[in-house]
Nucleic acid binder design. Structure first.
Lengths: 142, 142
DNA sequence: TTTCTTGCAAAAGCTTTGCACACCG
DNA sequence: CGGTGTGCAAAGCTTTTGCAAGAAA
């Protein structure tokens, strides 16, 4: 569980505290295969731990993003979604406009071309986002 | 002015009306070199035509997006921005996190790899977004 | 005239914040 | 204990909508 340790270290370094809620939220978040919004994660948590507050979930997700174990995403539906970045290498997304499916992919050749473009403009890349919108195999037929 | 004609045709086809406001908003929008948010475009317009309403600007920008002469963008600052898509080919963005500069670029090799990835997943691309976040040449030095 | 559009104000959503109480170290 | 975190409610923002009056066709 590298993500959990990174988070604990981050808290410790800054004099922040490790709490029951933060642990629960992190566990639930890491358990998500999807890209949950604050709302979704909050609802999932509340089923198991009814006392938990929306703001706590919100603030904790921001902490995750700050310490780098999560990344904030926005697929254009007006909600911020978070994805665990500790799982593996960076990846990008295919987003189906019809059924909402999100397929992850990665392609080092694209990344390399991105670096080349950035270099050409004297730009230093910190991160990027690439999303392809359209219809997945199932929906393209219909 | 291909954009203007596309918009007029779009309105005509659907029995919608061409109005003074829609013309003004389109003119101002096409005149923007930047990627204005609804708010920004509204403020610019209001300076010249004080009577204009925010909702009219908002609704008109959505019309532009519907008929394809504009694209909605979201750079993560909580505001939807619009960019004219009639100007030229599709392009992507380098976004400077320090000074806010937005540099446009295009690279057909990246587009081709995107198509390849999509094909591999049986996915049909309708459009995409690629943004590289980091620091521009000026800001990287500081 | 008939239908669509506008501008205002109000409503909706999602995100963020203030505060009193609770908890961690 | 002292300082941080939590949960609730309220506030902020941006986006969206209802409606009466106004403008196209």
């Amino acid at each position: 569980m590298p993500g959990k340790q990174v988070f604990r270290d981050y808290l410790a370094e800054r004099g922040l505290k490790s709490t029951r809620q933060r642990e629960l939220i992190l566990d639930e978040f890491l358990r998500c295969a999807t890209h949950p919004s604050t709302e979704e994660l909050y609802l999932r948590l509340r089923r198991k731990y009814p006392g938990i507050g929306y703001s706590t979930v919100h603030r904790t997700l921001k902490l995750f993003a700050e310490c780098g174990i999560a990344a904030a995403l926005n697929f254009g539906d007006g909600q911020t979604r978070y994805e665990s970045s500790s799982r593996e290498q960076h990846h990008d997304h295919l987003v189906c406009r019809s059924c909402g499916a999100i397929i992850e992919f990665e392609d080092p050749r694209i990344e390399e071309l991105q670096n080349e473009v950035a270099a050409r403009h004297g730009f230093h890349i910190e991160n990027h986002r690439l999303e392809l919108y359209g219809r997945c195999g199932k929906c393209a037929g219909s």
